[in-house]
Design a protein around this nucleic acid. Structure first.
Lengths: 164, 164
DNA sequence: ACAGCACACTTGTCGCTACAACCCTTCCCG
DNA sequence: CGGGAAGGGTTGTAGCGACAAGTGTGCTGT
């Protein structure tokens, strides 16, 4: 716990990151909530399911891909199920486990919400950065996540965000 | 709304950022909550007050420096006041306004919480990055914040995070 | 001098997340 | 093959943030 304080450059970087941490989630949530009645996290859950084989995933795997705890995911999926966007059913392979499958309306909801969301991400994150900075951001994210999640279990391998 | 999808590089960067957005706040909150009984936002509020002249700021200015909305700040300051860490009193210059001043116990609380917090920030953000990446992160943060907060009113000018 | 509007908050309510139990199933090992 | 530990998931509760009013003050113009 013998910690030196941050120098001016480190401080500047941290302040900026803290501000982004504070402001960006609100912007993402607001747009999706207004245009699709979804939280950013809701959207992420539906998006991950939409790209899974059979549009189905086990809760644990879904939690991993969305960087969420299991209790949080369970609550969210309950609400989504109540709205008919997702269906839960017991996993045949392991009777402890539960599968979540995207329903037809759920699929339509993602398709409908995706363009506006991608537009928001472009507008607030991608467009203001140069190509170089995009790559730098990816590397920085990797480095930080390695510390946040040493086991490497989180930090989804999300390769097809751009699927229509 | 004629939005092209994200290409692979943009996607990778965004996924990483989204993961950091999801995981980092939890880590910061957990450490401060466990060791000092404070939210990260609570800490930020107290820290900004501790560096203000007379350890006093108007609510609006405090909200600006902490990237918060006024309703949110009002609730948080109410709770902090209830714990005796902050005191509110009417601003003499403008009878619409309210000033918030850090109390003695509030000052001690920040001093007590600071080392552990800085340690956490080091561990999860500063240490995993190279010196170059620190500067890149600052530039990236600046660029994004320009879009998030076009008026430039937010995004605190936080120059003395390192005061002991 | 007074209408009208903008500003600086405060309060109330609702929804979401974290944390801590809790239950059932599977695995491990003697 | 039985008993304990670990894995997978749900539920309950408390606390925080967003949004939408509501109150009172200051500014502007005519």
């Amino acid at each position: 716990m013998d910690t030196p304080w941050l120098d001016r450059r480190q401080l500047h970087a941290w302040i900026r990151l803290a501000a982004v941490l504070e402001l960006l989630p609100g912007v993402l949530d607001a747009q999706l909530r207004r245009d699709a009645g979804l939280t950013h996290f809701d959207y992420y859950v539906l998006a991950m399911l939409s790209e899974a084989p059979g549009r189905t995933l086990r809760m644990t795997e879904l939690a991993r891909q969305t960087n969420a705890t299991l209790p949080r995911l369970s609550h969210v999926v309950s609400r989504l199920e109540g709205r008919g966007l997702v269906k839960r059913f017991p996993c045949p392979d392991d009777r402890r486990a539960t599968n979540a499958r995207l329903t037809g309306p759920g699929w339509e909801k993602v398709q409908e919400a995706a363009p506006g969301h991608v537009d928001t991400v472009r507008q607030h994150v991608v467009d203001p950065l140069t190509d170089e900075q995009i790559d730098q951001l990816a590397a920085i994210g990797d480095a930080i996540l390695t510390r946040l999640d040493p086991s490497g279990t989180m930090a989804a391998t999300y390769t097809r965000y751009d699927e229509g």
